[in-house]
C-alpha cells in the first residue's frame, strides 16, 4: 500500500472546481489545505501539489483513469481491481502483497498520471507546463524556437511525483520504481508519430512531425500483456554496489526496463479476505460459454453460478435535427446474466 494511493483516495472526495474540496465533515477546503493535509507527501510533492488547483485536478483525474483502466482490464479476472467499500485505500490492502497485481497498479497509475498531465497541458489548463528544449536557453524562446512537446513534461511530472516516495534500497521500493518506469515506457512506446508536409505547394520538402498520445485503453491493454508475462524477481545486494533486482529463475529471459516485476506470489482471490481487502468472486457476472478465465467455471472457482434475467430500457432510433433537437424512442430488451455463487 503506497502513500500515493492513499492520497488519491482522499482526492476522491474532490468535486467540480466551482464547489472545491470537501473535508470529511462536508466543509469546503482550498486546494492548498488539501495538499498540506497529506502528511505522507514529501516536501517536494507538497510543493508541486500546492502550485495550483489545476494540478491537483489533473493528478486526481490521472488516478481515476488509472483505476478505471485497471478495472476494465481485469473485469473478467478473479481479481477485478476493486477494493471493498469503506477501505482506506483505492485498491484495498492487496497492495501490501508485492504481487503481479501490485505491479500492474503501479504501472497503470504512473502511466495514467503522465497521460493526464500531458492532456491537461494540451488543454492549456496547467500554467506551468514547460516550454524548454533543454538547449538554447534564450530569452523569448517561444518566439525563437517554440516549445517542447507536452509528453516530456507529463512523463517528467509522473516521475517526480510517483517516484519521490519510493526508497531505492528496499526490495519493495525498487519493485515499485521499476514498475512505475515500465508504465511510463509503455505509454511512450505507444505514442504514434504523425507528420504533416508543408513545403512548396504542400510538398514534403518540409515536414513537421509530432507524437500523438495513445488512448489510455491501448496502454492498459499493453500493460495487461506485460502483467501476464511479469518477471518474478529477488533483491540482490553486493557490498559496495547499489541494490538491484534480478530474475529469480535464471532460465527466464533477462530483465528489461519495460517489463513488470513482482516479488511475491498472488494471494487467492476466490474467497473473501477482509484482512487483505479481497472481495472474492461471489456475485460476479461470468460468461457461461467461455472456457477462459472469464468463464463461469474458472471465475466462480468451481462453486457454480445462477442465472438472472433483467429488463433493460434504452434510448434508440434517435432522430437528430441541426440545430438542436433530438428525438429518441425507448426500446426495452431482456438481458441474461450469470452470477457466481
Amino acid at each position: 500500500m503506497t502513500k500515493y494511493h492513499r492520497i488519491i483516495l482522499q482526492l476522491g472526495t474532490y468535486l467540480p472546481p466551482s464547489i472545491g474540496f470537501l473535508d470529511t465533515n462536508g466543509n469546503s477546503k482550498s486546494h492548498n489545505d488539501v495538499c498540506q493535509s497529506f502528511r505522507e507527501l514529501t516536501n517536494d510533492q507538497r510543493r508541486i501539489c500546492s502550485r495550483s488547483q489545476k494540478i491537483l485536478t489533473a493528478i486526481s483525474q490521472g488516478a481515476r483513469i488509472g483505476l478505471e483502466e485497471c478495472q476494465h482490464q481485469f473485469k473478467n479476472s478473479r481479481w477485478n481491481c476493486t477494493a471493498p467499500p469503506n477501505t482506506p485505500s483505492l485498491y484495498g490492502n492487496v497492495m501490501s502483497i508485492k504481487s503481479r497485481e501490485t505491479a500492474y497498479i503501479h504501472a497503470i497509475n504512473s502511466a495514467a498520471l503522465a497521460w493526464s498531465i500531458t492532456r491537461a497541458c494540451s488543454r492549456g489548463e496547467l500554467d506551468d507546463c514547460a516550454c524548454d528544449s533543454n538547449i538554447r536557453k534564450k530569452p523569448r524562446k517561444w518566439q525563437w524556437g517554440g516549445c517542447s512537446e507536452d509528453i516530456n513534461y507529463g512523463v517528467g511530472f509522473s516521475r517526480r511525483f510517483t517516484d519521490a516516495q519510493e526508497s531505492n534500497s528496499s526490495a519493495a521500493g525498487l519493485m515499485n520504481l521499476h514498475n512505475n518506469e515500465a508504465g511510463r515506457r509503455a505509454l511512450r512506446a505507444r505514442m504514434q508519430r504523425v507528420c504533416k508536409c508543408h513545403g512548396m505547394s504542400g510538398s514534403c520538402s518540409l515536414r513537421v512531425c509530432w507524437r500523438r498520445l495513445p488512448p489510455m485503453r491501448v496502454v492498459s491493454e499493453a500493460l495487461g500483456s506485460l502483467y501476464d508475462g511479469a518477471s518474478h524477481v529477488k533483491l540482490v545486494q553486493r557490498d559496495g554496489r547499489p541494490a538491484k533486482l534480478r530474475r529469480r529463475d535464471p532460465d527466464h529471459k533477462k530483465l528489461i526496463k519495460s517489463d513488470l516485476v513482482y516479488l511475491e506470489d498472488s494471494p487467492d482471490y476466490c474467497e473473501v479476505n477482509t484482512e487483505l481487502g479481497i472481495l472474492g468472486t461471489r456475485g460476479r457476472i461470468c460468461n457461461r460459454t467461455s472456457h477462459g478465465i472469464d468463464g463461469c467455471r474458472l471465475l466462480c472457482c468451481g462453486r457454480g453460478y445462477q442465472t438472472r434475467i433483467r429488463q433493460v430500457e434504452e434510448k434508440c432510433n434517435c432522430q437528430f435535427v441541426w440545430c438542436c433537437r433530438v428525438k429518441c424512442q425507448m426500446c426495452s430488451h431482456t438481458r441474461e446474466e450469470h452470477l457466481c455463487n
Binding site: S122, R123, G124, G145, G146, C147, D150, V208, C324
Partner: peptide, 22 residues
C-alpha cells in the same frame, strides 16, 4: 537556427453551446 517549424498540440475544451448560435 532552430528547427524550421514547430507545433503545439491543443486538446479541444468542450463547452456547452449557446442556443441560437448556429
Amino acid at each position: 537556427a532552430p528547427l524550421p517549424a514547430n507545433h503545439q498540440n491543443i486538446l479541444g475544451m468542450v463547452c456547452k453551446d449557446i442556443p441560437g448560435s448556429q
